[in-house]
Measured scan of single mutants.
Amino acid sequence: QVATSTVRILGMTCQSCVKSIEDRISNLKGIISMKVSLEQGSATVKYVPSVVCLQQVCHQIGDMGFEASIAE
């Protein structure tokens, strides 16, 4: 089973930030795809909930120095 959710990301300033986040999160087990939008300050994450949760994704992004939260 696959889920798609949006994560809000604060602190991104350039495409390099976007690429860094996409590269790191895409390597997590259970992540199918991730598309980060600098303009919208968010990311669309396609993932397998039984393998990885959005809290883990937000935590990983937080470790990179950005502020991440699950969009309502």
Rank of each mutant, 00 (worst) to 15 (best):
Q1M: 05
Q1C: 15
Q1E: 15
V2S: 12
A3L: 15
A3I: 14
A3P: 03
A3V: 15
T4W: 09
T4Q: 08
T4V: 13
T4G: 04
T4N: 05
S5W: 05
S5K: 07
S5L: 07
T6C: 10
T6Y: 14
T6W: 11
T6R: 12
T6L: 12
V7D: 05
V7Q: 00
V7M: 13
V7I: 15
R8Y: 12
R8Q: 10
I9E: 03
I9V: 05
L10S: 10
G11F: 05
G11C: 07
G11P: 03
M12I: 06
M12S: 03
M12L: 07
T13F: 15
T13Y: 15
T13M: 11
C14K: 00
C14A: 03
Q15E: 12
Q15D: 10
Q15T: 08
Q15I: 11
Q15C: 05
S16C: 05
S16I: 11
S16K: 14
S16V: 11
C17I: 06
C17N: 06
C17A: 06
C17V: 06
C17R: 02
V18D: 01
V18F: 03
V18K: 08
V18I: 06
V18M: 04
K19A: 09
S20L: 14
S20K: 15
I21F: 03
I21W: 03
I21D: 01
D23V: 11
D23W: 08
R24A: 10
R24D: 03
R24C: 07
R24P: 02
I25F: 09
I25K: 02
S26K: 10
S26C: 09
S26D: 03
N27W: 06
N27E: 11
N27P: 09
L28K: 02
L28M: 13
L28D: 01
L28I: 12
K29F: 13
G30V: 09
G30I: 11
I31K: 00
I31H: 01
I32Q: 01
I32W: 04
S33M: 08
M34H: 00
M34R: 00
M34K: 00
M34V: 15
K35E: 08
K35T: 09
K35L: 07
V36Q: 00
S37L: 07
S37D: 11
S37E: 06
S37W: 08
L38P: 04
L38Y: 09
L38T: 01
E39M: 08
E39Q: 10
Q40S: 11
Q40G: 11
Q40N: 14
G41W: 06
G41L: 08
G41V: 04
G41N: 13
S42A: 11
S42M: 13
A43C: 06
A43L: 07
A43Q: 03
T44L: 13
T44M: 12
V45M: 04
V45A: 01
K46I: 15
K46W: 15
K46M: 15
K46N: 11
Y47L: 02
V48M: 15
V48H: 15
V48P: 00
P49C: 06
V51K: 07
V51C: 05
V51W: 06
V52N: 00
V52R: 00
V52H: 00
C53T: 14
C53G: 10
C53N: 12
C53A: 09
C53E: 10
L54N: 01
L54D: 00
Q55H: 14
Q55P: 06
Q55S: 11
Q56V: 10
Q56C: 09
Q56W: 14
Q56L: 10
V57C: 04
V57P: 01
V57G: 03
V57W: 04
C58T: 11
C58Y: 08
H59W: 12
H59M: 14
H59F: 11
H59K: 14
Q60W: 12
Q60G: 04
I61G: 03
I61L: 11
I61M: 04
G62W: 14
G62T: 14
G62P: 03
D63I: 12
D63Y: 09
M64E: 02
M64P: 02
M64N: 02
G65R: 01
G65N: 04
G65V: 04
F66N: 01
F66S: 02
F66A: 02
E67Q: 12
E67R: 12
E67P: 08
A68I: 07
A68Y: 05
A68S: 05
A68Q: 03
S69W: 13
S69G: 06
S69T: 12
A71C: 12
E72Y: 12
